[in-house]
Design a protein around this nucleic acid. Sequence first.
DNA 1: CCTAGCACTTAGTACGACAGAT
DNA 2: ATCTGTCGTACTAAGTGCTAGG
Length: 758
Amino acid sequence: MSGDYSHNDSQIDSGSRYNDSHKHKEKYKEKEHKHKEHKKDKDRDKSKYSNSEHKDYSEKKHKDKEKERLKHKDGSSDKPKDKYKDKEKRKEEKLYDGRLKKEKENGFASPLHVKSEPESDDFYLSPKSLKRERDDDDSEYKPKKMKVENEDKSEKKAKKRKQEDENTKTKKKTKDKKGEVADGKKKAKKEPEEKWKWWEEERYTDGVKWKFLEHKGPVFAPPYEPLPEHVRFYYDGKPMRLSPEAEEVATFFAKMLDHEYTTKDVFRKNFFKDWRKEMTSEEKGKITDLNKCNFTEMHEYFKAQSEARKQMSKEEKQKIKEENERILQEYGFCIMDNHRERIANFRIEPPGLFRGRGDHPKMGMLKRRIRPEDIIINCSKDSKQPKPPPGTKWKEVRHDNKVTWLVSWTENIQGSIKYIMLNPSSRIKGEKDWQKYETARRLKSCVDRLRAQYREDWKSKEMKIRQRAVALYFIDKLALRAGNEKEEGETADTVGCCSLRVEHITLHPEKDGQEFVVEFDFLGKDSIRYYNKVPVEKRVFKNLQLFMENKQPEDDLFDRLNTTILNKHLQELMDGLTAKVFRTYNASITLQQQLKELTTADENIPAKILSYNRANRAVAILCNHQRAPPKTFEKSMQNLQTKIDAKKEQLADAKRQLKSAKADHRVCKDEKSKKAMEAKKKAVQRIEEQLMKLEVQATDREENKQIALGTSKLNYLDPRISVAWCKKWGVPIEKIYNKTQREKFAWAIDMADEDFEF
DNA sequence: CCTAGCACTTAGTACGACAGAT
DNA sequence: ATCTGTCGTACTAAGTGCTAGG
């Protein structure tokens, strides 16, 4: 069941959508300021309506949350695995509820794999480590102890385990070979033969994220290196030496000189204000006008530097690469519950000028340098704590295993907290990702009921409910984001569904031959423009008219609604349901549907991949994932066309040759001419194939001009759909997912078979 | 309730490495 | 071998959604 309305008509083929958000931003500037004055209207209005039928939401639900975590294996395609043998595990198993236990009895146990753990430190990876410690009575998880413990185990047991280990391994190997022939040779080198399959283990259920965490802390930005003497800054035409502090900030600006940013008033104003804060009083007295500042020498210097970097010899480059690798090995990994896991961003953000997206009021402000004293370290008590650089201290070291981050600091632009967390390939991120798709799949099974309900609610006599129902309809049909409120003046003026304002939609009782058309035009996340004309049901249309009555353009469309109210409602309809689940659900179901529709059995692999990309594109369009057309787009498109033309010529030529060969053969009828003819035939075929490949490539690229496929692939599409599709049609998974993506989706690649249904 | 703060996911872009063309 | 275009990755901003505390 794909109960998926008519996304495709309204979105995919929509010629009316245009993507050049930047061109149209100007228009929003004026609006932005106006709406602020009216912002308070919502609060005022609220008291106008009676709260009579106000529902009393009980808090019951939240307890059930944890249950849901356990559920997530239910819907997936489980494969039988080796039976459990480890006694210790058995014991632990009893701590879990029946459902889980049953699963395990089905043979969903993790194989033993310790020895081959990727490049891991033996110390932590004693054979027992095949499983995370879950006993809650003792949260002090001690690796050392474990190792000892393990060595103390009876020989018999150890041998037995070892044997099993071998068994699993051989099994695996065969399987791997089947699956990834292409990888074979690389693997032989360094790569471990087996990766940890965390998805075959049970999960924490109590909000605990880990039991053991050890890491080396962050890598700080390199200290500032003052400019050489000959590179000068000029004020009012005269050279001027700056103090190191002021100079550093000046270089930030100088580096951005050919960027459009530096011409914007807000940017310049913010920059100048913050720059002056870094100046000595003497400098402050002198430098009073940014327009009199000349950074060009600095700018040239940095350009030359980056040029020099490009011109470096192979050896130098190699050296840098090695150094980076060393840092990566040292700081880029942590030990979390017996496994060495990759950290996503172990480098602290360097200082610089804040580059907000869109019309950001804070663009150009100085993002200050982060020092060890700003840093909070999170790790387990019994781990080797990271050391701050000599002569410095951490702000704090804490041991909070209810969160996943390793390092945090507070950023000075918005005052928000930044984190260092693990890579998407890690267990902790992967589990969450998997869970997300399982929630979306649960939505699939009740979306019909839900849709029926909100349609019913369009008729409600309560304004609040009607607004909620219409908003939900948009979120479902158009995959709009929830639209939290934002603090004014702190960020660019962007909106989502609940925060839509009257000025963002236009109602057309009739437009382009369609009835009840709503025209959306607003800036969404990252100030990306959403423009769409959608025919809606009459009832929705009438409701919108009602919501807009007596309102100013700057007023909220849904004045009785916000994301909290909406999500509370959704939570009651389905456990774990929030507005964003609809995006995941609709994206994934659309992919599945489109793949079904577009893939044909007799196409070759490139054509199949084009079909996949088209399905992917349908989703990207639905979710409004845009990109700036690549700078080189036109040119590379032309080049491709040239190639195609050349190929066509070649084909025509080959065809002529074939024709004459045929004629020859008809005359001679000997072996030789027959062979010649067949050779020509083959040549034609080959060229035809090449031509087709090129043409496919051209189509694909053209259609992709300003659509970004990456975001949906990475965040919205259940990877099991893609894996199943690849298996079904014999498309190598490498054609769909690159290495990083395969690492992120290892769980899906391992567990989905060709009949996986989202 | 309401808000602020926190944790975590989702987002586009800049840039360098690398592969394929010349 | 050099050039050029593509791709992968790092980076970090900007969302969502929950919760604690007034």
